[in-house]
Design a protein around this nucleic acid. Structure first.
Lengths: 191, 191, 191, 191
DNA sequence: CATGAATGAGCTTTCATTCAT
DNA sequence: GATGAATGAAAGCTCATTCAT
């Protein structure tokens, strides 16, 4: 039982931080930000309220960390990282990724939607989201332009509206939504 | 000098009630239900907090009155009232109506989205909304079936996701969204 | 249809006043003073809140008028008005009167008990009540003294405690309380 | 320096809880439940309003804890715990106990009376009180039956009315009430 | 590092009272 | 006289945040 090394301490801190964030995401997403209390989160995470403030300096910072983290994951998942060109196969793959995202990050997505509707809160994340949406729009516009679609921008707006609309409906009623069929249809129709 | 007649009282009540509801819709929509306080609403409506409760017996009743009223208007705007058959022209007209709705009731639409994300609150309105959505789904499914589309249900889900997605994006950034162009494209593509 | 005479106006005022007081007594007694609202009373009395304030300048004044009036009635019912001497028959009659009072003024009695327990409110009526209790005590003490009871004061305290205790129990559970039997026993035992 | 141990926390909680209950009993008893505000209690107890709700989840729970606690003490003080038979000495002792109770728990007794008069609140405690009153009635009825009194139930009602009536008067004016003399008289007369 | 008691601002709601008509 | 819309103070309660230990 030698004393813990600094690295071990850091790992403990990191793990705890992650566990708080996971718990908080769940609680925020379930109850809405305003209705979720720090007490609930702390209890569910198995720590004291005081300790929470050791990891996040306010409820708002906790939220914003969660959201920015989530957006970063989104960014990574969606980041094509391919220098400009998007083939048909790549676009198909891309859509698959979007749907994987919708499905895997359902909880996050729910929170994201609920925040989006509150300008007062949303302002915090708008900029970061733009960083994700912009390349997404650019790459699809390029794709449609190359494909010879009449108005690539509109086409691109259409498919992004579809992504959000589908995500919205799915998150709202995940059990009965035919997500896979919709995905296939989308690939048929929009690739 | 002479006391107010019942008719005068009724007018006062009606006007005030309307003004409270209008203000509240704005405040709820801007801040989310949970974040909007009765104080904010009262101040913005230029009345005392107490008076609110002369008109609505709770914050929840205020919300629910606003939402049900809005859904009723939606219902009237969208109610096809055509016994079963939907021609191409009618469907075009129908889409026009939906976009008119999105545009005119922007504030309400925003509130509607934000509530959808909070199951605890949403339960209050689910039933009424179903009455609107159900005939909408039915009529579009029928339309696509008659048109010979392979999977009418999926097609219908697709277009309803589009409506919500577009509404979502438009509400979010109404100045720059090319709503009319999108509408034209939608009619071209989905009618 | 000649215009109403001043006397008629006065009668209207008097009747209305009485009706407000009766209603208020009921409402106060049923709900307790603090839980009874002016709105409830006005509605139940069939008049507007504003008019209430035409008859009583505050809720407290309404209460105090009711209580003092009730105490006056008590006073009249119990006032022996017999110059000093109290025969056995008169004492029996007196006890009959007390029980009649308990029974007839059940509602008032309930209010009276509930107020008695709140020093802050009670102070208002203490003096008037003393005027009633004092001759009551005096006359019973005299009675017992003449009868040769060892300690007339104690005996008098005992019977007045009994009156209140019985009233208390009866008011609390009027259906099952054997008021008449208790009265007979009391006369047997204490006259 | 070192963090507080669970035992220390428990002591803090226990002490504070007791202090709040003591203060609240006084305030409720002095002003009546409805007229006593949490603010008053908190101020008198020297704590913030918020803290109250760390210890009792509502005003009603605070009241009900106090009353049930008091009734339990009553129960213990009065619980005969003697299997059926009640001798003359035991009955005397029993009356002594009742008077001790009236005297020691004056504040509680006052609250108890004031609550009794408000059916809406009283319902909460009725059942527990019945547990106390029932054996009390039973044991005295048995006693009087054995003694050969003509109507033991009436006799029992009489003495319980006396207990309440005396308590009532004593609580109302404790300084001048000859509680001991009354007690002696009661024992002479009713044992 | 960890705890949870404690605070205080702000929330929803109620209601006696006023007053323009 | 009569109405009820309107006010404002105060109630019960919640919760993010602080801090002594």
């Amino acid at each position: 039982m030698s004393p813990r090394t600094p690295k071990q301490f850091e790992k403990i801190r990191h793990d705890r931080r992650k566990s708080i964030m996971d718990t908080a995401l769940e609680v925020f997403s379930e109850n809405g930000y305003a209705n979720a209390s720090i007490s609930m989160i702390a209890k569910k995470a198995g720590i004291s309220k005081g300790l929470m403030y050791n990891y996040f300096k306010s409820k708002e910072e906790l939220l914003s960390t969660i959201v920015l983290d989530g957006l970063n994951e989104m960014f990574e998942l969606l980041d094509p990282n391919k220098d400009g060109v998007l083939t048909k196969e790549e676009f198909t793959y891309f859509i698959e990724e979007v749907f994987k995202l919708i499905n895997e990050k359902r909880t996050f997505y729910k929170l994201y939607f609920s925040l989006m509707m509150q300008p007062s809160v949303w302002k915090l994340f708008e900029a970061r989201l733009a960083e994700i949406i912009e390349p997404f729009m650019k790459i699809t516009i390029d794709y449609y332009a190359k494909k010879g679609v009449e108005n690539p921008l509109l086409e691109s707006l259409l498919i992004s509206a579809l992504f959000d609309g589908i995500g919205f409906h799915y998150v709202f009623n995940p059990e009965q939504y035919p997500l896979d069929d919709i995905k296939k249809l989308l690939i048929e129709r929009f690739v």
